[in-house]
Each structure stands twice: as structure tokens, then as C-alpha cells.
């Protein structure tokens, strides 16, 4: 009997895994005859981090404001945990935690007083939960300081704490790394991954920083001028190490280098530029040391060796660039 129960709850947990927690259905926003958001549809599942990607003015913030009901939808609907934002706002919004644009608080109150404001706005948020979320974002020591004395990074973290307080199913963050230093960005990325994984929350993050999105998201939704342009899955499997990668080399002698590499027969030459002393090769990760050794043995001086990254960025420029000129 006990076993059965266990199995049931395990099955439930498994089905939770792919539950769609946020669903946009043909959402549009028209202001002054202009379609700021145009027939946008996509979904976010629990435990998944989805990036909403687009250049400045693409309509990311407008889309997010519609999702949380701050602005009305001209067309379409948003469903959160099964409830419609336009028809049953209160039922839908209780599943959402969000930071929209900047994390804003009452500056003359302490961090704790601010969180207590949100606690009183929701049923069933315990003192224990407040401690839990402040510990998660590492703000325990700053809770009794006034928010006006917080750094931007601290306010971002308080923003996350506020958004997680009521255990939402969906977390929505508009440019959460805005104004954070590299260490802060990395930390933020780590929380978000942790939260998505541990609490099985579906996360929607908007950004125009592609490199950020690549590191954090399992999927990106690219929009441009309010329209959906592409949806891409991003693989984070650590197979990168084994699979081949592209390298850019800056060497003393391009010709000699390319002959040496051809002889080595482990790297595929992608391009060379004798004037700049650069060449690009495709090589397996484990072959890199032997490649370097072969070059050095052949008397080729190596100034620089760099991985060529960011397929997504190239693709992004292609999508958005192509659209702009159209």
C-alpha cells in the first residue's frame, strides 16, 4: 500500500515534469494602430528556462507586461497553470512571480519590511519561507538595512526573493542581469538553474544578450518587431569536449601552418587569412595538444589560439538583420 502511494507520487512528479505552466496563444498588443506585439505564441514548461530574445524595442517588455496583466491584450490570451489571464486574473496571477524591468521597492523600508509587504499580499507565506528565500539569494545579513542603501545587485536579489516568496509555478524576469557585474551575472545564472531544477519552476527570461541566453536557457524564443522569428533549443550536454570545435589561430606563418596541419591530418582547415596571419580550423577537443605540438615542432610561432563560439549569435544577427532590411 505504502509502495503504491510512493509509486503514484513518483508518477505524479514525472508528469509534473512536462506540465505546460505558461502558454501564450496568439497574443497581440496594438497601440495607436501599431502592432507592438504581433500574434505571439509560445509556451514554457515546468523546470525549463526559456529565453525571450530580441533586439531593443522588439516587444519583450510589452509581452511580459501582458503576461502579468499590467497591460491588456488586444488579441489572444495567456494561460498560466491552466487559468486565463484575461478571464480569471486572480487565479492565473497567483502562479506567477516576476520582476519587470527593474526590481523596485519602497526605499525607505528595510528589505525585510518590503518582503513582509508581499507576505501580507499572499495567503500562507510563513516567516520560515521568508528566511528560506533570503538565504537562497544570500541576503540574510542585509535584511535589516533600508533598501535605499542596497546596491543594484542586492536589489536584483531582493527582487528574486520577492518573486519566489509565494512558490510560483512560473518565474518571469525581464532583463534580470541588467546592471550586474560579471560575477553577479554568473551568480544569477546559477540561482536560476538551481531554482528551475530544484523547485521545478518554469522560468521565462528576457534579454538582448545572446551569450547570456546560451549559457542559461534550454530554449530561446526570438522575436523581432513583435513577431516570432524562431524558436531554438540549446544543448547543454557536456559533449562539447568530445565533439569537434572551431578554433581560430594567430600564427607567424600561415602557409607553413596550413601545410603542417594538412600533414597532421587531424584538423580540417576552414579558412585562412595570410595578411592577418589568421587561420580557422575544425578540430576534436582531444587533438588540440598534438596540433599545438605539431605547429611548434614545425617552427610555426603561435600568438593566439581561441575557440570560435556562438553559433546562436551569428544566427541571431542573421534572423534579425535579414528582417530589418526586408
Amino acid at each position: 500500500m505504502v509502495d503504491m502511494n510512493k509509486r503514484n507520487s513518483a508518477a505524479e512528479a514525472r508528469s509534473d515534469r512536462n506540465e505546460t505552466v505558461l502558454q501564450l496563444d496568439n497574443v497581440s498588443k496594438i497601440i495607436g494602430g501599431k502592432k507592438l506585439v504581433n500574434g505571439l505564441s509560445f509556451e514554457v514548461k515546468s523546470g525549463e528556462i526559456v529565453g525571450l530574445l530580441g533586439p531593443n524595442g522588439a516587444g519583450k517588455t510589452t509581452t511580459i507586461r501582458m503576461i502579468v496583466g499590467l497591460i491588456g491584450m488586444s488579441e489572444g490570451d495567456v494561460r498560466i497553470g491552466g487559468s486565463s489571464v484575461s478571464k480569471s486574473f486572480e487565479a492565473a496571477i497567483r502562479h506567477i512571480g516576476a520582476i519587470i524591468e527593474n526590481p523596485e521597492f519602497y526605499p525607505y523600508m528595510t528589505g525585510l519590511d518590503n518582503l513582509k509587504q508581499f507576505q501580507r499580499m499572499t495567503e500562507g507565506v510563513s516567516e520560515e519561507r521568508i528566511r528560506e528565500v533570503t538565504a537562497l539569494v544570500g541576503l540574510q545579513d542585509a535584511m535589516n538595512k533600508k533598501v535605499k542603501a542596497y546596491s543594484l545587485g542586492m536589489r536584483q536579489r531582493l527582487g528574486i526573493a520577492q518573486a519566489l516568496l509565494h512558490k510560483p509555478k512560473v518565474l518571469i524576469l525581464d532583463e534580470p542581469t541588467n546592471g550586474l557585474d560579471p560575477a553577479g551575472i554568473r551568480e544569477m545564472r546559477d540561482y536560476l538553474k538551481l531554482i528551475a531544477d530544484k523547485e521545478r519552476i518554469g522560468i521565462l527570461v528576457s534579454s538582448h544578450m545572446l551569450s547570456e541566453m546560451e549559457l542559461m536557457c534550454s530554449r530561446v524564443v526570438v522575436i523581432q518587431e513583435g513577431k516570432l522569428i524562431a524558436v531554438r533549443s540549446i544543448n547543454h550536454n557536456g559533449s562539447e569536449e568530445k565533439s569537434s570545435m572551431s578554433l581560430s589561430l594567430e600564427v607567424t606563418d600561415v602557409e607553413l601552418a596550413s601545410r603542417t596541419l594538412a600533414a597532421l591530418n587531424k584538423a580540417e582547415l576552414l579558412s585562412k587569412d595570410a595578411d592577418r596571419g589568421m587561420l580557422a580550423v575544425k578540430v576534436k577537443h582531444e587533438d588540440i595538444p598534438s596540433l599545438v605540438k605539431a605547429l611548434t615542432d614545425a617552427g610555426v610561432g603561435l600568438y593566439r589560439l581561441e575557440e570560435i563560439k556562438s553559433s546562436l549569435e551569428d544566427e541571431f544577427m542573421k534572423w534579425t538583420g535579414a528582417n530589418r532590411s526586408a
Binding site: 499590467l70 506567477i96 508581499f118 499580499m121
Partner: peptide, 14 residues
């Protein structure tokens, strides 16, 4: 002006 209206309006209250 402070922007806190956003957080006020995205809780489960009309």
C-alpha cells in the same frame, strides 16, 4: 513613480 505599482498589481488581488 517608484515603479512599485508593478509589484503591487501582480499579486492575486483585483
Amino acid at each position: 513613480r517608484m515603479g512599485t505599482i508593478k509589484l503591487l498589481l501582480i499579486r492575486a488581488h483585483s
